[in-house]
């Protein structure tokens, strides 16, 4: 287990280097110039442009720029935003909790509904319930997020007026962030109605973001359960006179979860990609929206650093999932 873990950690290094190169190249391949965009409508004299290029180091060869950038990262310096002039790392950690909060809520929703739905569909295989669940999952799976988000906004925020359209909490409330998680901070603030407002802001983005992972998890759970339910050990469990709830919920599900956990791990990448869209739709001040804004402004340092940090996050989560996989599968655990 330890060897397996160390091996996986060692594997992070080449991946990290690869991602840093891709992130570096990606933003430079896009047409557009950060300094011209900064100048905006007014434009800028040629001398001033040269001067700024030198200030930001954009006049040097790409290779030099890359190694300069890589050297900085090795020292924990991700550079600073050309737009806000704040360090990238600082901006990242300011916005990160918002994304985490949204993603966590989405994954909890996806797992919390996806697994029971998949189990139910498998147990009632072929019934109308199975067909309804799987039909819904197929629809959810192929749902274009942007369109789905807008649809929900139009219906729940527009027609019904139940939920707010954007942001994390109503402007009526203000308090200093403590944990960065609005649900917790709003409770800590002690302001009446703050928590309720935070929840109402969170609901629609969570639903939108959870939709695809939920569908994938439900389908994967169903097929894993179907396979496991035919196994000899499930018959053994029943032959012991155990209640069906225990046979299905413990003996079968425990085995079915092994492939499902891998799926959930893979969904984290999908989730963060989805977060970019979802945050844009709901003006959710997280790193997804931050990335999109920065790409439009060609904020090189932010895009490079942000992509690298997001990629690292995905890699770490996948590593944790692998460890978890080892823990729940006795055949791997040593």
């Amino acid at each position: 287990m330890l060897r397996f873990f160390l091996y996986r950690v060692a594997l992070l290094i080449p991946t990290f280097i690869g991602v840093s190169i891709v992130a570096f190249a990606f933003i430079r391949l896009l047409p557009g110039d950060p300094i011209m965009l900064l100048a905006g409508e007014r434009g800028m004299s040629a001398e001033r442009y040269q001067e700024l290029q030198a200030v930001y180091g954009f006049d040097r060869p790409y290779l030099v720029q890359y190694f300069d950038y890589a050297w900085g990262i090795l020292q924990g310096d991700f550079g600073q935003s050309i737009v806000t002039k704040r360090p990238v790392l600082e901006e990242f950690f300011t916005l990160f909790p918002a994304t985490i909060e949204l993603s966590l809520c989405a994954i909890i929703l996806a797992v919390g509904i996806g697994i029971p739905a998949g189990v139910l569909a498998a147990v009632k295989r072929g019934s109308w319930l199975d067909q309804t669940i799987m039909g819904a999952a197929l629809t959810g799976y192929s749902m274009p997020i942007f369109w789905w988000g807008l649809l929900l906004i139009i219906f729940f925020s527009g027609t019904l007026g139940w939920t707010p359209v954007s942001g994390r909490i109503s402007l009526l409330y203000y308090f200093e962030p403590v944990t960065g998680f609005m649900l917790i901070d709003s409770l800590l603030s002690g302001q009446a109605g703050a928590f309720k407002s935070a929840v109402s802001h969170l609901i629609l983005p969570t639903v939108v973001l959870a939709t695809i992972p939920l569908a994938v998890i439900a389908r994967q759970t169903r097929s894993a359960m179907l396979e496991v339910l035919g196994e000899d050990y499930v018959r053994t469990a029943r032959s012991k006179g155990l209640a069906p709830r225990r046979v299905i919920g413990l003996h079968a599900l425990r085995n079915a979860l092994i492939p499902v956990v891998t799926t959930i791990g893979l969904q984290v990448g999908v989730l963060l990609a989805g977060a970019i869209l979802t945050e844009t739709i709901f003006s959710w001040p997280g790193i997804g929206k931050w990335m999109v804004d920065s790409v439009f402004k060609r904020d090189y340092a932010v895009v490079q650093g942000g992509l690298l940090l997001i990629a690292s996050l995905i890699m770490i989560v996948n590593l944790l999932v692998d460890v978890l996989y080892g823990l729940i599968n006795p055949r791997i655990r040593k």
Partner: peptide
């Protein structure tokens, strides 16, 4: 009622012992 008897008064063992035990427990 049958589950109370099964596993207690009537027990059964099977052909494939390796796959009849639950690998996770």
């Amino acid at each position: 009622q049958r589950r109370e008897i099964i596993g207690r008064d009537i027990a059964m063992i099977f052909q494939e012992p390796m796959s009849s035990l639950n690998p996770c427990f």
